Computed example of a mutant assay.
Amino acid sequence: MTTGLSTAVELATFCPVDADEHWIEPLNDGTHVLIRPLQEEDREREFQFIKHLSAGSRRLRFLGTFSEADAPLMDRMMDLDYENRMAYVALVHRDGQLLEIGVSRYASTPGAGRCECAITVADEWQRRGLGTLLGGHLIDAARRNGFKTMTSTDLASNYGMHCLARNLGFTSRYPSDGYSEIIHELDLGK
């Protein structure tokens, strides 16, 4: 039987992400952001981030509508092992607080070496290059963790994600059953 302490030590030893891994990078407008792995201490920030997305941005991110993130959703969003389920958060200082302005994440999917990703940027921070930065770090982590293919399924009307996916090197196609969604796919071996 494993105790909680030894499990924590095993996870800390196993975790492929350097605890100090972070980047301070400029956006297209010169604003600097902190990008680092999402951590449990970010739970309330992640909740506030989702809560303050416009209804349209929430619909594009979650492929549907809801009024507020509930506890089960937050538990799923924060369930990371930094190998099969990874997330990076982008933060800025505002009024003496760290504010989440974007997040990128992937999770392994059935099929050898496959993961599905999502990138979300707060409405007021879009079109400044943040999605590209978050996507680049996510792609690097997926490669480092041995994934061969990264995909994203989005609403066909999500033109912002379509442009971002193309800029990150993804190819795009419609699923065989219609045109309401689009599948972006990236070969991580390249």
Rank of each mutant, 00 (worst) to 15 (best):
G102M: 00
H137A: 14
T65S: 13
L164P: 03
G4W: 03
L134T: 03
T7P: 05
L98K: 04
I139E: 00
F170S: 07
H137N: 13
N28S: 09
E41I: 07
R144V: 06
A122P: 12
K190F: 05
K190H: 07
S57K: 03
S172Q: 15
A8L: 10
T153C: 06
C163F: 04
S180W: 11
W125G: 05
R144D: 11
T2G: 10
W125P: 11
Q48G: 11
S54D: 00
L168K: 07
D187M: 08
T109G: 06
D187Y: 08
C163Y: 05
M150W: 14
S67C: 01
E100C: 15
D42Q: 07
R128L: 13
R85C: 07
L186F: 00
L38F: 03
Y174F: 14
N167F: 04
K51N: 13
S54N: 02
K190G: 01
R85V: 02
I24C: 01
R36V: 07
A142W: 01
P26S: 01
L80E: 07
M86F: 03
D70I: 09
V9S: 01
T65V: 11
E40L: 05
R59T: 08
L186V: 02
E68V: 12
R94I: 09
A156D: 15
G169P: 02
I24F: 03
E21Y: 10
P26V: 00
H184I: 07
R144H: 12
E21C: 01
I101D: 06
R128M: 08
E124M: 04
A165I: 05
G64N: 06
T151C: 05
A112V: 14
M161V: 06
G56I: 04
A69T: 05
A69C: 06
F14P: 05
G136E: 01
D20W: 03
I35R: 03
T2Q: 14
R85H: 11
I24H: 02
M74C: 08
H32P: 01
L188W: 07
A87S: 08
R45G: 07
Y106T: 04
R59F: 09
K190Y: 02
T65W: 06
R143G: 08
L130C: 09
G4N: 12
D29C: 10
N167H: 11
G113K: 00
L188C: 10
A156H: 10
R143P: 07
R105H: 08
H52S: 13
G146Q: 14
R114P: 10
